[in-house]
Design a protein around this nucleic acid. Structure first.
Lengths: 145, 145
DNA sequence: AATCAGAATGAGAATTGTTTTCAACAGCTA
DNA sequence: TAGCTGTTGAAAACAATTCTCATTCTGATT
C-alpha cells in the first residue's frame, strides 16, 4: 500500500475516535511499517529515536483502539505490535519459545478457508460472536535450533 | 483420568525435574482439575483457601516447567492456567474480549488434521521446530452479548 | 525413631512492564 | 493573536509477578 493511501486511511480511522494523526503517531506507524514484523516497545524506542516511552505506550493504545495496529501478547516479557491486518494481510505467528521472537506466516487459501468454516461452526454452537481468530505456532526458530 | 493415575504421572514428571509433588502443588492440581477451565491466580486463591499467593505463583511455574499445566496469556490482566493437554485433550480457546473469560473448545478431527498438515508444511519451509500450535477465537461470549 | 541436608513455604519486599499524572506545548478556529 | 482542546514528556504511580529469607517440612540415612 502506498504511504499516502495508508496515511489517509489511518487519518480516517483516528478521526472516527476523535484522535489526531500526530507526528509521534506517524513515526510509530512508519517504524512498524519499516520493521514488517511484530516489534516490542524497546525495539521501537531503539529504532526510532526521539520518541518518549510514555507517548509510545499511550499512542500504541490509541492506535490499537482505532484498529490501526494489533497488540500481540506472548509469554515473553514485552508485548509486541504490528500494523493491523487491514493494512497488511491476514496472517499468523510463529513464536519462538527460546528467544521470544515472533515471525509472520500465512496459510494457503484452502487451509485458511477450511479453518474458517470449522471455527464459524463452533462459534455458532456456543453462541460466541467471532471478532478474529488467532493461530500461533509455538516452537524453536531456525536461529535458536 | 482417575485421580491416582493422574497423581502418579504428575509425580513422575516432577521427579524428572527434581521436584516434589507437595501438598500445595496437589492442591493446585486439584483446583485446576475441579475448575475444568482456564483460571486466573486470583480465582485459584479464592477457590482454594490456605494457599499463599507467592507459593501459587512459584508452584505454577514449577508445574509448567514440568509440563503439568499450561499458561495462557491473553490481553487480560491476569495469566490463566489449566491442566496440560496430556491430562485432558487437545483443545483451543474462545477468548471473550469483553469479560476476559476463556472457554475451551475442540475442532472436529478432520479440521484438526487438515490444520496440522498445513502447519507442518509451513514450519518445515521456514526451519521452525514446532512444539505446539495454539488456536484462539477472539470475540464476545454469550453472556456478554 | 532421631538427625540432618536440602527443598518448599509464607509474608512481605522488590522488580518491572505498563499506565497515569500534570505542567508545558502544539494545532486548530475565530 | 487569543483561546480552547488534544498531545507530549518526565517522572511518579500502579499492579502482576518474582524474589528474599527465615522458618518449616521431607525424606533419606543412620
Amino acid at each position: 500500500m502506498a504511504t499516502d493511501e495508508l496515511d489517509d486511511e489511518i487519518t480516517t480511522l483516528l478521526h472516527q475516535e476523535d484522535q489526531r494523526y500526530t507526528k509521534g503517531r506517524r513515526a510509530l506507524v512508519a517504524t512498524l511499517r519499516a520493521e514488517g514484523q511484530p516489534v516490542t516497545i524497546p525495539q521501537i524506542l531503539d529504532a526510532s529515536d526521539g520518541l518518549a516511552q510514555s507517548s509510545v505506550y499511550r499512542n500504541l493504545v490509541v492506535l490499537e483502539e482505532a484498529g490501526v495496529v494489533t497488540r500481540i501478547v506472548t509469554n515473553d516479557d514485552f508485548a509486541r505490535y504490528e500494523l493491523a491486518e487491514q493494512f497488511t494481510h491476514h496472517h499468523h505467528h510463529l513464536i519462538c519459545s527460546s528467544c521470544g521472537d515472533v515471525i509472520d506466516f500465512s496459510l494457503d487459501d484452502q487451509a485458511e478457508a477450511g479453518l474458517d468454516e470449522a471455527l464459524n461452526e463452533i462459534a455458532e454452537q456456543v453462541g460466541f460472536t467471532v471478532e478474529a481468530h488467532r493461530l500461533d505456532l509455538v516452537g524453536t526458530c531456525a536461529d535458536c535450533d
